[in-house]
Design a binder for these strands. Structure first.
Lengths: 198, 198
DNA sequence: TAATGTATATAGACCGATTGGTATAATTTT
DNA sequence: AAAATTATACCAATCGGTCTATATACATTA
């Protein structure tokens, strides 16, 4: 009972959805207020430091969401390769189901835009990417992969994933994500063959 | 001789630099006017349809720049694998040299943001990605790769490239691009082994 | 060659709308 | 009563875009 501060949560979820689908600058506070059906007074009350603070919280919260999904997916599959494959497959279908316009937690292309705003936000986005890379690498290491190679592979996977997502969103076509997902399995399974030297 | 319409060119190059480094919405017309040292009257005169028309021209022009660089790089290397590798290596070094803030022609992360503005701009960005994919695929086919596989590989390469660029820009570290570049060579060289089935 | 006509190009004030943000007052909840 | 929350009016600044007046360039004439 007693839904405490429903307005605050509504603002955060709405803001996150808008930030990660439209971008930071394209999303006005007025739009957040309107779509979240929260009063503007509350926005100032809950986030006294304004838009940047709100964005910061959105990044944190979205990151936790993604990390949880990574761990859930890994827990539900025998191999890391299968897990990653399923993760991207899910993303492809969710993207399509949302009409290529809706909220995609993994959609961190706005990290570049956000990084221009302040060093603080930039560091946060950097931390998000590092978290994802670490979660993947840990799983690979657990399966016997050499540490350095696992870290490289983790970085490659999130690079490919983000890139494919950008193209899928732009093209409004899930194929780039599907192609990436099929390839992902190969990356992790045959890492030894495809990993190259500096 | 007689430098015709220097103002127009200045506006385009400045706008392209700002759009692709900051994003569309983060870049105001006033900033473009100020940094290009062109008069605001000229902006209206040369681009009567406003900001969107200007962005459209920037996308076209930047695309031609990249396509030319792709062809030059391929012409200068024996194998597609070597060419791609060099292409990404160059990009990594240019990114660092520019302090991770400057203009990067390949930086098309803003395609997602741009796609929200109008269907026309979205289609243009889609065409840009398709062009890049085609140029790479053509080279691979020329080297004997099966058509369908070459197209998939081209898509994977530009996905990985864009993703790695995003992370490099966010982290202000060229390593993600370098890691991708080393891996690229493996992708094209060992395509048969790593390409997986749907 | 000189004068004129006609694009083209530039200057810069100006527009309503919206931006992020602030203030204070009224309301609700505890 | 006290504290937390919401309502609303308001702010300067900037947004993209428009306007007219002027200046420059270039071609056509005389």
């Amino acid at each position: 009972m007693s839904e405490k501060s429903n307005a605050r949560d509504n603002i955060i979820s709405t803001a996150a959805r808008l930030f990660f689908s439209q971008g930071y600058h394209a999303t006005g506070l007025s739009q957040i207020v309107k779509e979240s059906q929260a009063p503007k007074g509350s926005l100032y009350h809950y986030f006294p430091n304004g838009k940047e603070e709100l964005a910061s919280i959105c990044i944190q919260q979205t990151n936790e969401l993604i990390l949880q999904k990574f761990e859930d997916t890994f827990a539900a599959h025998k191999s890391a390769a299968d897990g990653i494959h399923q993760f991207v497959q899910d993303m492809a279908h969710e993207t399509e189901a949302a009409g290529f316009t809706g909220f995609l937690p993994f959609s961190f292309w706005a990290a570049v835009e956000t990084s221009c705003i302040s060093q603080n936000l930039r560091k946060m986005c950097q931390g998000v990417f590092a978290d994802w890379q670490r979660v993947i690498a840990r799983q690979l290491i657990h399966e016997g992969m050499e540490t350095a190679k696992a870290e490289d592979t983790g970085l490659l996977i999130i690079s490919l994933l983000e890139g494919a997502l950008i193209i899928s969103l732009t093209n409004q076509d899930k194929q780039p994500l599907l192609t990436a997902s099929n390839y992902m399995a190969a990356v992790t399974k045959h890492a030894k063959e495809i990993q190259s030297h500096p």
